[in-house]
């Protein structure tokens, strides 16, 4: 009969993972919303280039991304030298390093749904807002964002869930330091390596359930948004 409670280090991993996902998602929105807006609106060729760059993590093995980040951020890498010169120390094997890596890795999961939503809004709504006296920022805040609510939710859920589940990048850049860089997926790996399957089940099952519930909730929210415009009612 296996012991079915989580050990303190499991809780540590869960807390660290949640923190990582939350911080990463916040940064992803700060970067991703303007970036997606620009990609949705630009007609320049630079747009295609940036689009492709953002999508690279979708096809690249996470270990490859992690490896290059390690090289780039390490003591011999240009970014590593910069962070050291600025007195920030080295990013690999630290929480900030994990945040940087997760942000890059999850970027397409936030930017792509946002870009699709922004593109779907169409020129006309923006023109209407302009003829009613709304400047570009006003229009973005009061027309584009409210109309993009389903896309914003998708992006948030996908970005969060994807960050929760990453393994390869984290392993390369963060290592396996309990309490500092040991996230949930790595904790599961450790449990499996140690043949502690019951613990692995508990953690893996929890992650599975969370991901499923999050996606299910997203489905419901989006469906409600389509069926009942009242969901999207703004203040008058």
């Amino acid at each position: 009969m296996p012991e079915l409670t989580l050990a303190p280090e499991d809780w540590q991993a869960i807390a660290l993972t949640a923190k990582l996902a939350a911080v990463t998602l916040s940064i992803l929105f700060v970067i991703g919303v303007p970036l997606a807006w620009w990609l949705a609106r630009t007609r320049s060729r630079l747009g295609s280039l940036v689009s492709a760059l953002v999508a690279v993590p979708l096809v690249l093995p996470p270990t490859v991304l992690g490896f290059y980040l390690l090289v780039l951020l390490g003591p011999q890498g240009p970014v590593g030298r910069l962070t050291e010169a600025l007195g920030l120390g080295l990013l690999p094997f630290s929480f900030p390093g994990l945040v940087v890596a997760s942000t890059l890795f999850s970027l397409p999961f936030v930017v792509q749904p946002l870009q699709a939503t922004f593109s779907a809004i169409g020129e006309r709504m923006l023109e209407v807002a302009a003829t009613l006296g709304a400047g570009p920022f006003d229009t973005f805040w009061h027309v584009v964002l409210p109309l993009s609510r389903p896309g914003l939710l998708s992006a948030a859920v996908l970005g969060f869930a994807h960050t929760l589940g990453e393994f390869g990048v984290v392993l390369m850049i963060g290592g396996n330091i309990p309490g500092r860089t040991q996230v949930l997926s790595i904790a599961i790996y450790n449990r499996v390596e140690a043949f502690e399957y019951a613990h692995a089940h508990l953690l893996a099952g929890g992650l599975l359930a969370f991901s499923f519930v999050a996606l299910l909730a997203l489905q419901f929210i989006n469906r409600a948004g389509v069926g009942a415009p009242g969901m999207l009612r703004g203040g008058a």
Partner: peptide, 25 residues
């Protein structure tokens, strides 16, 4: 002057109301 600084009213061919706002909004 950009459009939003011009005091004009514009009615487009297809009725282009903001779908997320009521008539009052």
């Amino acid at each position: 002057l950009p459009t939003h600084r011009r005091p004009l009213g514009y009615v487009f061919q297809e009725p282009s109301l903001f779908p997320h706002l009521s008539v009052r909004g």
